[in-house]
Design a protein around this nucleic acid. Structure first.
Lengths: 203, 203
DNA sequence: AGTATGTTTAGGACATTGTCCAAATCAGAT
DNA sequence: ATCTGATTTGGACAATGTCCTAAACATACT
């Protein structure tokens, strides 16, 4: 692990712990037993460091998005995995709005991944319709909106309202919410998959 | 309007414009043609100023919450009003997570209003069941969860994804989302109210 | 009117922040 | 061994929120 990676790793750890805005570069440097200027050598600005973390999360999520989702079960499983990634990089999602407002590099990069995610969810939903998991009259735009809102902010709400729960319990709370959301639009085959998914969370 | 109120008004204006974290007390003072120390006389810390804004929003919302909601239409109308208040104090909601993490006064106060809102929504939903607007088998906890998540973060998502829309269009977007959410759980009478509500947004 | 008392304003000090830079140090190839 | 480029250091800089003292002001009382 080279110096840049050590900085990234410790930064993620401290940012997750206390929030990006509340960890000074001098504290980060002190934890690494280096000088501040040494960090700015690898990452000229704090935003560059944050951008790097965002790239790492983006890569992590891209793997999950590329997977096939032949069933409603695996579609829900996909969100469980993405939410697990969110926990790993929770500092980014907890500062989501500020980062988008202030960090041009990040907000630019997000626009692209946003489009990809949107069309990915649309594709998956219509695929689930074809395979007989979802009813044909479902309002896709509505479902995508709720999924997007939840995926973006579930961890923000959890940090405020469910801080007493473990990460896994928090994840289960919100994937269950997504599962329940789909029930009215699911076929009998779909509802079976949702029950199977809910049961898989128990263990 | 006394000095403290002038400070509060200008602060809200600038905070909404550029974000609480990105407006310095010196800029605020300059806009008011006063000195920094003059602000800290009325509001010893920046958090005190933010707390005041939060109180104002809380009072504004409390009025709406106390209203009766005899129909599904007025229940949805309630959220439209609350969302309009959110727009007026959007700086607070855009910094929601940070404020909750850092500002003890604010997070303490929020815990109470959170409970009130939660039980208020529960009461309203069961009342709507009794009045024949909602089916009796609805999963109340699920609905409250989605409503809460949306009410907290709709404006954050709108600021990122729908910045090109006007405030009213943004509000309509998300109250429509809440309305659509209820459709599967509504009776025929309820669906009639939802259609009426959607139509009322057009004008 | 003059004085005393309490409120408001001015102005600056302080520590902390992210950023930046020049010099010192190190490492590896010639 | 020496030169060259990469790395590290230590400090300067402006901006931030906070704090404090002295001046200015207003109000009430003698």
């Amino acid at each position: 692990m080279n110096k840049a990676e050590k900085i990234v790793a410790k930064a993620l750890e401290m940012f997750n712990e206390r929030g990006i805005e509340y960890v000074g570069l001098r504290e980060l440097a002190a934890e690494l037993s280096i000088r501040v200027g040494n960090i700015t050598y690898y990452f000229p600005t704090k935003d560059d460091l944050v951008d790097r973390l965002a790239q790492d999360l983006s890569r992590l999520n891209a793997q999950v998005i590329l997977e096939e989702h032949p069933s409603l079960f695996s579609f829900l499983e996909r969100f469980r995995k993405i939410f697990a990634n969110h926990v790993q990089y929770r500092c980014l999602l907890l500062s989501f709005v500020h980062l988008m407002q202030q960090n041009k590099v990040l907000s630019g990069a997000y626009k692209e991944t946003e489009k990809k995610r949107y069309s990915s969810i649309v594709t998956n939903l219509s695929s689930l319709q074809e395979r007989g998991y979802l009813s044909l009259e479902v309002d896709t735009d509505f479902l995508v909106s709720v999924f997007t809102l939840t995926a973006r902010f579930w961890i923000s709400e959890a940090s405020v309202s469910f801080a007493h729960l473990s990460p896994v319990e928090q994840i289960n709370q919100y994937v269950t919410l997504l599962a329940k959301l789909l029930i009215p639009y699911a076929t009998e085959k779909g509802r079976h998959d949702i029950r199977r998914f809910s049961a898989s969370l128990e263990s």
